[in-house]
Nucleic acid binder design. Structure first.
Lengths: 234, 234
DNA sequence: TCCTAGTTACGTACACCGTACGTAGTGCGC
DNA sequence: GCGCACTACGTACGGTGTACGTAACTAGGA
């Protein structure tokens, strides 16, 4: 009666090892690492129970001893990458610390491009997620406000990072399964947009199109967005 | 040679009707409406090619005459709900107008709970998406800034709405496919969180937990976040 | 010490998915 | 009026998550 609970169950409340029966061949960390490896290399859609089991070298259904549902596999993955956050002694300048947190999270997400798609408060309860949240709150110690407000700030920063990185990598991830390249895709969409805009139906869009802003630097767009949000809090 | 292009193709650049051959039995609007109806009622995962075809009353493969890939079905859905935005004559107060835009989008997303999951710049080229963007830019006419900045503002507002509504409905959507209710799920997670926090490993989290803030009102959390972002721009 | 109950391991099977391909019928443009 | 592009759609393939049944194993209680 390992899995199949008829009652809600957080995977983290299940002990990894109970003592009875044969010693499990893999740890949760092994499984998470295998799944993350696949997702990094071939995209989130390549992460199937069969594929992960294959990567581990066991039968497909054996995985279900460790992970009652595929959702929980995602949860293990999220916890594993949350563990990549390197924490530090808060500097005393909460604004600077939050900017550092945000940049680190952005780097994390660009390293694991499937992460924004999986981002959800549902995965906010894992050990490493709690550890990360506690660190954010520690950085916010000098920020005099109720914890409710601090939580809102953390949620906001995480939201911004997720949104921006998600947008940054959307076309990249999308064309992974398509028979043409990202450049071709972009060119086709720009061409179509140009035609629409030239129709005269969207004057301001046309003006925006005409305004030559030079090449856009994703990093600085992100930086500006982040600072504006923090300004809104101060 | 209707579908199956080896070259990138935006669905909107394909004419809905070419003239040759039998008159199509359904319009794109019909198809989008059917898909939206299913997604609203049973969740995005219930939207399959077979299911939509069944809803329309045609064979599964007939759908592929209208929609080369399932992705394009999503694109039709996104355009259809974008069309639900009701636009207005800008008031002259861009801040007020953007707040109104944001609230309307939030309502739209809460009406179609699958929308945040599908939100992506990839779908930003559809007719109704362009119409919506043009409207946002019109609202921002009094805001003196280059179009690049206005675009960043619109992206930011959309991002905030998506993030917040996405978080609001995450557990609701999640438990749709689970054998237990959302309330049970939440209770289980809170209970687990309580146990973790009580362990003493997360002092600030514990303090936050202890701080009785009363029931949280999602609407006002959203409102605060939105105003902070707009403040950051002004 | 032995027994047994709770585990691990995993093969088979089912219902569902997206969609490639082939075939038949239809009606517009030349 | 002919030809061809189009619509319609059945079949089939390789994939998915996972329910279920069975065999092997091992730690705890008698």
């Amino acid at each position: 009666m390992a899995g199949r609970a008829a009652v809600p169950e957080v995977i983290w409340s299940r002990p990894e090892r109970t003592g009875r029966g044969p010693r499990p061949a893999y740890s949760r960390a092994d499984i998470a690492a295998a799944a993350v490896r696949i997702a990094d290399a071939e995209g989130l859609d390549a992460v199937s129970m069969r594929r992960v089991a294959g990567e581990l070298g066991c039968g497909t259904m054996s995985l279900y001893n460790y992970v009652p549902r595929k959702e929980d596999l995602y949860e293990l993955m999220m916890d594993a990458v949350s563990g990549e956050h390197e924490l530090w002694e808060p500097s005393g300048d909460w604004r600077a610390d939050m900017i550092r947190v945000a940049h680190q999270t952005r780097a994390l997400m660009r390293r694991h491009t499937w992460l924004p798609r999986l981002m959800s408060p549902v995965y906010g309860f894992s050990p490493n997620a709690l550890r990360y949240l506690e660190h954010c709150l520690a950085c916010l110690d000098p920020f005099e406000a109720p914890y409710g407000t601090k939580m809102e700030l953390v949620a906001m920063v995480n939201g911004i990072v997720t949104t921006y990185v998600g947008n940054e990598i959307a076309t990249v991830e999308r064309t992974r399964s398509l028979p043409w390249s990202q450049e071709q895709e972009n060119a086709a969409r720009i061409a179509y947009l140009g035609r629409q805009v030239a129709s005269g139906a969207y004057p301001r869009l046309a003006a925006s199109f005409a305004e030559d802003a030079g090449p856009i630097d994703l990093e600085s767009v992100f930086e500006r967005a982040l600072r504006r949000v923090l300004d809104g809090f101060a």
